[in-house]
Design a protein around this nucleic acid. Structure first.
Lengths: 341, 341
DNA sequence: GGAGGACTTCAAAGCGCTTTGACAAACAAC
DNA sequence: GTTGTTTGTCAAAGCGCTTTGAAGTCCTCC
């Protein structure tokens, strides 16, 4: 059943039926009702590809999903997608997800944009000097970045959390508790949030004349295994750190296993603050020792970005181009006074 | 840059350029090379919507993502998507994801299929007597179901794991270890896998003349919190169970917290076997007491389904309509002999 | 020298929708 | 009775691609 058949069935032109369906005012209400009735009876649905072709709008957001045979799937991605979805479902938008090898992201994003399949793009996993930004700016597809790109003029639309402040505050708390020896379990070095969190920690330390030793920084994928390995290494250091900042509750999961295996007590021998993306699976309060965290909901960020993107596409309302969300520092049991030497 | 412009630029007809790009044999190799060169220089990409409209094929798989403001995002979904993606990326397929309220799944799936936006559908979270099956059969869009639907003639294409055998085997192991009092921590009651796993357990018990008490069955969402709650209730039963079968490592996570909090020892006081979907975040070997599991990779299932769907769309090769994968029973530390009374 | 083939290329139709510009019909105003 | 204004409807063009059917060119072979 297509528009032509439907209009023949009704003895109307395609124009009139199309307008009746799309809410145009120049259609007699009685006619519109007849059309709607026929749609209900026949189950007619407009062909999206044709609509897209005719209007240039498709009601869809595009994103690139990094994937590869060996590539670990990322819980953060799923959670973010849930946030996007929550908002998209309200506006009858859908997603076009292009899976791509992480090394091929620029090209994949470009393909997606130019394909004419999406109205707007969402971009994540930002790096320092991210090569996708110049590319995106040269295109006419609207986009919003989750995160920022260190080293690039911040003149693009983004939503980020204040990673630097988050880790600055976390470090401050540790300092107040008397900790002097810090370690940082961070995400991959090239990622923007990792850069900023490190800066946040370092500037808090610098204020007290302290310095972060290279041995006490790990940059790894955000998996619990990597957390375990990194923590094991920290614990073997001659002058082992007592204050750990950790970029994810996922890393913390492994880190805490290492602490337990070493027979140490979290919140006494070792204090730890993790960044909490509010993953449903890893609630900080559910850890055997509840975790002190810097918190910001990934899902809420997803919903907000969807809102901005859809608003832009539909031209309803205007939004700030740049948003920087503060994180909350939530103190629980995993932080305590520095142990006496 | 569109096909018309490109062909004018080259002084060729649209036909020839189109054929050159799509690998048709009736194009002079020299001409094809010229076209390809021009594509490289101009960055031309065909408009997908137009291609879709012209060919009826879009190179996309459709799926419905259950979501709602209060709805917990599901790690299993993300992991499955990763599997689909892994395969899709090889064939330059993408996904169209329609977020939908869980109560609206049938309609959402229908919309997605009829929209003409997808070549094939993937369907999950199967229920007993699933209402989506009759609907799907009435459409002409190819689809593959992950799971099965208890109570429906199995004449539709599916990929499932042998849930019944998995839990039958798990129960057998427990029985051999001398356990007599069983409990089941299952997923939502209406879901197909939950039905079959329960059957598997019950038939193993029946062989020994044992019976599963209603108190000893929980049907909940697969979250760690629900696991905690369910286990707490089991532990308060007057004649508390010693053998727990658990439908997910996520549930097990909470369950084990409850066991620990009760001061009991996993693998001694309580034995537990969980089903392991091979989530990267929850490796059974990383639990403080490594978990005995029935294992089947969700990600592998996703990849396989993508393979089947894409194969069907592209008409390359043929695949079995129905596949039933065996799970592996992997014995680790969480199972031990039944405690002496 | 003309028939038959192989090889290339092209103009035009069509996919299903939206939108432009034209046009009846009905009514109001002069 | 003409003109002007709404109101509701339509035919046709166009979105960017693929594909059909036709046709031009160049060989080969009798």
């Amino acid at each position: 059943m297509n528009l032509k058949q439907l209009s023949e069935l009704l003895g109307l032109s395609q124009t009139t039926v199309s307008r009746a369906l799309n809410g145009y005012p120049e259609v007699n209400e009685a006619t519109r009702e007849r059309v709607l009735q026929a749609v209900r009876e026949t189950g007619y649905r407009p062909n999206k590809a044709a609509q897209r072709l005719a209007t240039g709008k498709a009601g869809s957001l595009g994103l690139v999903m990094p994937t590869a045979p060996g590539h670990q799937s990322d819980v953060h991605f799923g959670e973010f997608l849930a946030g996007l979805g929550e908002e998209a479902v309200r506006h009858d938008f859908h997603f076009v997800i292009m899976p791509a090898d992480p090394d091929d992201e620029v090209a994949a994003l470009r393909r997606l944009a130019i394909s004419g399949n999406v109205d707007a793009l969402f971009v994540a996993y930002m790096r320092g000097h991210d090569p996708r930004l110049p590319m995106l700016k040269s295109l006419s597809t609207p986009f919003v970045v989750h995160g920022r790109s260190h080293g690039t003029e911040p003149d693009y639309p983004y939503l980020d959390i204040d990673n630097e402040a988050a880790f600055y505050d976390a470090a401050k708390l540790m300092l107040q508790l008397g900790h002097k020896r810090f370690a940082l379990m961070n995400g991959p070095e090239h990622l923007d949030f990792a850069i900023r969190r490190k800066q946040g920690l370092e500037s808090a330390l610098a204020e007290r004349g302290l310095h972060l030793n290279e041995d006490c920084i790990s940059h790894t994928l955000m998996t619990d295994e990597q957390g375990l390995v990194a923590m094991e290494q920290f614990l073997q250091l001659p002058d082992r750190p007592t204050a750990i900042l950790c970029s994810s509750t996922v890393l913390a999961l492994g880190a805490i296993r290492a602490v337990n295996q070493a027979g140490l007590k979290l919140g006494e021998d070792i204090s730890l603050i993790a960044h909490d993306d509010v993953l449903p699976l890893l609630k900080p309060e559910n850890f055997s020792v509840p975790l002190t965290t810097t918190r910001s909901s990934l899902r809420a960020a997803g919903a907000r970005i969807a809102q901005r993107l859809i608003g832009t596409v539909k031209q309803t309302g205007s939004f700030p181009e740049q948003e920087l969300w503060k994180t909350e520092l939530i103190v629980r049991g995993s932080t305590g006074p520095a142990p006496k030497p």
